[in-house]
Design a protein around this nucleic acid. Structure first.
Length: 780
DNA sequence: GATTATATGGTTTTT
DNA sequence: CCATATAATC
């Protein structure tokens, strides 16, 4: 038996050894599903001689795909893995569509619109239909269109679907069908597809073009899908088409971790799978190798509150571990401080590195307080998600040039840069040109490049001609230069790079650096040898580059080994694991989020999200919530999350207080929530005066606070951290945070000296000199 | 047409 | 609070 099979448990091995026919693997959190997937692919190749060109594996992130390839390569010991078709649904389909676009009337170098571009088109279309964008909010309309596409409902069907029409009428938005139609037409005219089109058009292609369908059915003899619980109907149908010939479809998922229903994902796909295919083999992976017993038990308890789920019971042979820590803080800033303090302390006490910690939250906006606290402590961190690199204005502007060079039909790109940098082509001119384009059924670019015949004022005409000439020059350069060289020329000729360079403000500097980074990334792209099969769509050109970067998440480009604390939403943490995990903001209206408590389905998804958060932790889990936090610029009171009620008391440790020992009532009765309520004398109906919370106002039961209160100390102007290697007892010092004090005692090894210092305002503290910033006061 | 001041409104999660 | 949209002013 091959060595790699020995490393599997029974059900894992069963999943790997099953060769032909549909198989569904229900894989609990931390049960080694990635291992099963990679081993399965390896096994197909090495034991069954399946050609690597005939395997398709779909993942949710590019990073997961890269990791999978790498692992397979390692086991196989050769470079066959590079021939595998591994990637996200979106990137794999984009690649296929790039080759087949002509069949559905699109140019091969079609542009991919990100959400911002797409919403902007929606907005344009709404205005052009003379509809009120207050009534038809672009955001809402876009989501509606997106949902339709994910359910494979095109504009024609949308307009005639009674149910949908009723819904829209009821919500006072009866024209959405028309907007959808106009939006689709405009995208088509622009030679552009949005994210959902990558699925929708892929489906259309396979459905309407038997030769394409046949081609890919033959090619993909084995299909594997990761995170199956998060697939939507469009993805389901595509897979059904692709897999119809061989039926060698392997799906791996966990219904308990389904958290993308807002993107159209449905657990129905799991149930439907067993109906659509004959003799589906089902394997359950229930042994968790990731977490301690305490953590896993809490997770099991939480998820058992959901009615909708597939029967399974996760277990682990891992240690009992520590109880999970539950911390209440006063404000979101305190919460940030508590987490930063704890990380610092854990690093010292348990020799953790920064990269062993993850801070997870429900919404991106929560990152701020954590970020500030970490920065203040000098702890290196990285935020994933939020505004990604390619969404920044300066980057999008620059890329818009490349987009218009590659695809002149891309109206969004054109509008973005036609007057950036300023060249005297203002709103009036653009509106007029767009109108002309619409009236004459031309693209905006066509109007501009023939501006002479449309009676623009001579000055404006001159500007337009100058712009058009410049873009044409870029296009001719494209014939002889690679993407990087072209980008350099663009940066120079437009003056963008110079402008940014001359802007010496902090933001200007950052923008300049970002553009430089963009140029570097283009360079890297042009210099990296190409994946063999990308050759099928021609070049290593600009078009390929542009299509690639839109689908990049910033989780993808991670410097895996950087020693930084990771901050991200729970959604973004799916599939990852960390030794120590903090989950912040466990409060009503935030988590579960107020937007998602109106139906059982929504609430259960929030609970699954909580489940995902908990199961990211290997050894230590902190849950925190705050009395009040700033939202929309205002301090808002919140009750503790209802999910906390669901945690059995025996797994919880509330004595934790950011390192300080506290004598709190350790009653073993009731659950965490009840104790919390009691502790606060009947809950958060107690309104604190906004702003500062007086220290003295302690409840009868002392519920642990994040930290002993520190009297704020403002450091002296001339504060410079002194060399403390020769610190002596009796010396007077100033501490960055605790203020002035006197050294009472020196102890600890020379490696890790610890001073006991009596502070004027904050009492006696033990200070680790390796980390503290102390200024030794000159003794007279 | 560009620059600056003021108003508005938005936060759920992402490819 | 922050980012974007509109109005006001040059």
């Amino acid at each position: 038996m091959a060595k790699y099979l020995d490393e599997l448990n029974d059900p894992q091995r069963e999943a790997v050894l099953h060769k032909d026919g549909p198989i569904m693997i229900i894989a609990g959190a931390g049960s080694g599903k990635t291992k099963v997937l990679t081993t399965r692919i390896t096994h197909l190749m090495s034991a069954h001689n399946v050609d690597s060109f005939n395997i398709l594996a779909l993942t949710f992130t590019n990073k997961a795909a890269a990791e999978m390839k790498e692992r397979i390569e390692r086991i196989l010991g050769n470079s066959e893995a590079r021939n595998l078709y591994v990637g996200t649904f979106h990137s794999v389909f984009a690649r296929i569509l790039r080759g087949e676009a002509n069949k559905i009337g699109y140019p091969n170098n079609f542009t991919i619109y990100d959400t911002d571009d797409a919403k902007s088109v929606v907005k344009t279309v709404i205005n052009e239909l003379n509809l009120d964008d207050k009534q038809y909010k672009p955001n809402v309309v876009y989501n509606r269109i997106s949902a339709a596409k994910n359910a494979l409902i095109g504009p024609a069907e949308y307009a005639t679907d009674y149910g949908l029409q009723q819904e829209d009428a009821r919500s006072n938005r009866p024209m959405i069908g028309q907007i959808y139609d106009a939006y689709s037409k405009r995208c088509f005219k622009n030679g552009a597809m949005d994210f959902d089109d990558l699925l929708f058009k892929m489906y259309i292609l396979l459905k309407n073009h038997p030769e394409s369908l046949s081609k890919y059915q033959h090619k993909f003899k084995y299909i594997l899908i990761d995170e199956y619980q998060d697939t939507n109907p469009a993805q389901y149908e595509i897979i059904k088409l692709l897999g119809a010939m061989h039926e060698n479809v392997c799906v791996v998922g966990d219904d308990a971790q389904s958290i993308y229903s807002f993107r159209g994902a449905t657990i129905e796909n799991i149930l439907q799978f067993q109906k659509d295919y004959d003799d589906v083999k089902v394997v359950k992976l229930e042994q968790n190798y990731r977490s301690t017993k305490h953590i896993l038990n809490v997770a099991n308890e939480i998820i058992s509150n959901n009615k909708n789920q597939i029967e399974k019971k996760l277990f682990t042979d891992n240690d009992e571990g520590e109880k999970i820590k539950l911390v209440r803080t006063m404000t979101d800033n305190d919460e940030g401080k508590m987490v930063a303090d704890t990380i610092q302390e854990q690093k010292l006490r348990n020799h953790f590195f920064n990269k062993d910690f993850a801070i997870l939250y429900r919404t991106n906006a929560q990152s701020r307080s954590f970020e500030e606290a970490l920065r203040r402590m000098g702890i290196a961190y990285r935020i994933y998600g939020g505004m990604s690199f390619y969404q920044r204005k300066e980057i999008k502007d620059f890329i818009a040039y490349l987009r218009i060079i590659s695809n002149t039909r891309d109206e969004e790109a054109l509008k973005r840069i036609i007057n950036y940098p300023g060249r005297g082509i203002g709103k009036t001119t653009i509106d007029k040109a767009v109108l002309l384009a619409n009236e004459n059924n031309l693209t905006l670019w066509e109007v501009l490049s023939n501006a002479g015949i449309y009676g623009f004022r001579s000055g404006t005409l001159e500007s337009i001609d100058g712009f058009v000439t410049m873009i044409k020059m870029f296009q001719s350069e494209l014939q002889k230069k690679n993407a990087y060289d072209l980008a350099i020329i663009v940066g120079k000729s437009t003056g963008i790079v110079k402008d940014l360079f001359n802007d010496k403000t902090t933001e200007g500097l950052a923008r300049y650096e970002n553009v430089q980074e963009l140029l570097n990334s283009i360079k890297e792209f042009t210099e990296t040898p190409m994946n063999e099969e990308d050759g099928e769509v021609g070049d290593k050109g600009l078009g390929t580059y542009l299509q690639q970067i839109v689908l990049l998440t910033d989780a993808d480009d991670d410097k895996e080994n950087a020693d930084v604390v990771k901050l991200m939403t729970i959604h973004a943490a799916k599939g990852l694991e960390f030794p120590v995990v903090f989950v912040g903001g466990l409060e009503e209206t935030l988590f579960p989020n107020a937007m998602s408590i109106n139906t059982r389905e929504e609430l259960e998804e929030e609970r699954r999200l909580f489940y995902v958060a908990i199961t990211r932790a290997k050894t230590t889990l902190y849950l925190s919530f705050s009395n009040a936090r700033y939202r929309f610029g205002q301090l808002q009171q919140n009750d503790p999350s209802r999910f906390l009620e669901e945690i059995p008391e025996l797994h919880v440790d509330r004595s934790y207080a950011g390192g300080a020992t506290r004598n709190n009532a350790n009653s073993n009765q009731g659950n965490a929530f009840q104790r919390m309520q009691r502790g606060f004398g009947g809950s958060s109906s107690v309104r604190e005066p906004s702003g500062n919370f007086p220290e003295k106002k302690k409840p009868a039961y002392s519920v642990p606070q994040a930290r002993p209160q520190v009297k704020e100390h403002t450091v002296s102007e001339n504060f410079v951290a002194s060399d403390t290697s020769n610190l002596q007892e009796g010396q007077k010092v100033e501490h960055q945070k605790f203020g002035f004090g006197e050294v009472k005692k020196m102890e600890g090894s020379s490696h890790n000296p610890i001073a006991t210092i009596s502070f004027k305002d904050n009492g006696e503290k033990k200070i680790m000199l390796n980390y503290a910033k102390l200024r030794i006061l000159e003794t007279e």
